[in-house]
Amino acid sequence: MIAGDTVRSRRRRALLLLLAPVTLLLGVFFLVPLGIMVVYSVLEPGLYGGVEWTWYPFNYGRILGWPLNDYEEFDPIYLSIFLGSLKIACLTVLFSLLICYPAAFWVSRMGERRKNFVLFLITLPFFANLLVRIYAWLLLLRPTGFINTLLQGLGLIAQPLDMLFTSFAVVLGMVYIFTPFMFLPIYANVEKLDYSLVRASQDLGATPLQTFLRVILPLTAPGIVGGSIIVFIPALGNFIVPAFLGGSKVQMTGNLIERSFLQSRDWPFGAALALLIMASVVLVLMIQLTRAARTQTKGAV
């Protein structure tokens, strides 16, 4: 008994010791800044940046519809930019899913050496700087860029296509950046899929479509959900891609936040925007968590 207790307390101490660095890191560099953001988001903006220490809920009001009447007007532009960001993030998830899901099956059935090589290729973009890669798309998509020159040279189009600074360019750039993040969770899941289950389904008379819908899809759903969340969250707040490929025409909430902090120096407003994005992400995660919990309890019965 005594020996057991000492072992247990020693284990607990070891655990605390192991957890201390990460706790400290998250505490100092995540929770404290988050707290500052929460506090700033309800303070009055200072005239030249910074904050006045007075209660001021109208940062949220400006976005959601209860502005300080005699001073500011409610501008639905912020809401529409937010909805636009949501749409772009969803499209990014959708298209990267459409690319990665079949690709994961393809790669998972390759030979060992080829598979490792392909997985290396998928992580290869991380070796190059993000800005350089985005610039490359700028060069590809602009009116005198590679794609337009090529298509014109082939005589397929008379006028250059207007691709740059469109939602298309932004979604394209985002899909390009986030594809590896979608691919890896799906691949990890597809790789584990027991192929004999597919055989069993065929054997029991299911058509290929029935096998896909009733066996393959439900069993790979965790990878799809995981990949979608990992892509959706950073896509919603991304500002580099819209800044370069969307120009001034396609704005996302990320750009708005960046401008609030760095250009108009309205810190409380930027903080409020950032927290609203975070709230929507947390909402999505909560929905997913409750769903996962429900399927788990269903499984345990």
């Binding site: 055989r199 069993a200 389904s201 054997d203 069993l219």
Partner: peptide, 27 residues
Amino acid sequence: FNTVFQNYALFPHMTIAQNIGYGLDVA
């Protein structure tokens, strides 16, 4: 023809009744 597989290949995401009913469902 139907097969009983070496590792049984039961569908892990279905109940026993759903497993047994699978072939009837898809038919």
